[in-house]
């Protein structure tokens, strides 16, 4: 077990490009070049032991890609992912990855697609136990799955049912039970509540929070919902076009947003006190990610754009109180 305050996950200069070129023959005949989509373009952050790091941003900004890279669903194009001091990008065979994989888990976005419809809940939950060889014997595994089901607020009898017999919130609980089965230290939550009703969202979020206290878990929490993030996160990273534009502790971010994009996001949260008041609509469209704007990627939509922003890209700079901002105007 790493000490408290020590970085559990350290991501440095992470990049992932997707090849979205036309097929070879079309490229040849139409004289087009290969095209790459820079989904994640140089992202660095650290997650401390027992902390929840939230990544927010609009759809298509690369936050889910980061989640998939961290759990190893596909390899990064460049950069390092260090988990408790082990660089995951250097491990390439199954046997080396296995102990690290045991310590990580993932909760998915769509509770209707993340459980195999042909498997009973018992088998779904016990799959990690069997895959990592944590327990031997049928009886021990059955006992463990009952405990897991109770931990997520379901009854042990539910284990004999199929996923289609449950509601969305209950399915997400099953998904959480499966994530807990390998006794992980770190869980990646890829928008775990975005497919749920608001009332159920709160239950699932509180469950996730309580489990964190109980087992000392660390989370990478992907979301586009700032209200959810404010409730659950300790530290927030705001992403725009594949890059982090602001990273700050949750309190600092919500009270004192430094990046114009963060301010734009915060302004879009519906607020009862702002009812009936005129507010400035966000300007501009999201740029095409295949052809991102030069300089600061946010400059076409930014109210404070200067010539400097159009020509140069700001780096993520350290600010006061553990915050980092990538904006020339923030100083």
């Amino acid at each position: 077990m790493p000490d408290k305050d020590q970085a559990l996950l350290k991501v440095t200069g992470l990049k992932r490009y997707f090849d979205v070129s036309q097929p070879f023959l079309n490229r040849l005949l139409e004289r087009r070049k290969r095209q790459y989509l820079k989904a994640v373009n140089g992202v660095s952050f650290t997650i401390k032991q027992g902390e929840t790091f939230a990544l927010v941003g609009e759809s298509g900004c690369g936050k889910s890609t980061i989640a998939h890279l961290v759990v190893g669903l596909f390899p990064p194009s460049a950069g390092k992912i260090e988990f408790d001091g082990i660089d995951l990008t250097t491990l390439n065979n199954r046997a080396q990855l296995r102990p690290v994989r045991r310590r990580m888990a993932m909760i998915f976005q769509d509770p209707y697609a993340s459980l195999n419809p042909r498997w009973r809940v018992n088998n779904i939950i016990s799959e990690p136990i069997k895959a990592f060889g944590l327990l031997n014997g049928r009886q021990a595994i059955v006992q463990r799955t009952s405990v897991l089901l109770e931990q997520v607020g379901l009854s042990p009898q539910d284990g004999a049912k199929f996923p289609h017999e449950f509601s969305g919130g209950q399915r997400q609980r099953i998904s959480i039970a499966r994530a807990l089965a390998g006794e992980p230290e770190f869980i990646v939550c890829d928008e775990p509540t975005s497919a749920l009703d608001v009332s159920v969202q709160a239950q699932i979020l509180n469950l996730i929070k309580n489990l964190q206290k109980k087992f000392g878990l660390s989370y990478l929490f992907i979301s586009h919902d700032l209200a959810v993030v404010r409730h659950i996160a300790d530290h927030v990273g705001v992403m725009y076009m594949g890059r982090l534009c602001e990273s700050a502790p949750v309190k600092a971010l919500f009270e004192n947003p430094r990046h114009p994009y963060t301010r734009l996001l915060l302004d879009t949260i519906p607020d009862i006190e702002k009812m009936g008041r005129e507010c400035a609509p966000p300007q501009g469209e999201i740029p095409n990610p295949l052809n991102p704007p030069a300089g600061c990627a946010f400059h076409p939509r930014c109210p404070q754009t200067t010539d400097h922003c159009i020509c140069n890209r700001p780096k993520l700079e350290n600010m006061a109180s553990d915050a980092k901002v990538a904006c020339f105007q923030a100083f």
């Binding site: 998939h68 759990v71 190893g72 669903l73 199954r94 990855l97 296995r98 994989r101 990580m104 888990a105 993932m106 998915f108 976005q109 769509d110 697609a113 993340s114 459980l115 195999n116 419809p117 042909r118 799959e127 990690p128 895959a131 990592f132 998904s175 499966r178 390998g182």
Partner: peptide
Amino acid sequence: NKEYVQAARVIGIHPVLIMTRHILPN
């Protein structure tokens, strides 16, 4: 591309087992 297959891949289930036990019945 469904998430239950991704879930199995995250755990590190062998591709042959994913094909036979997860995808085949579906």
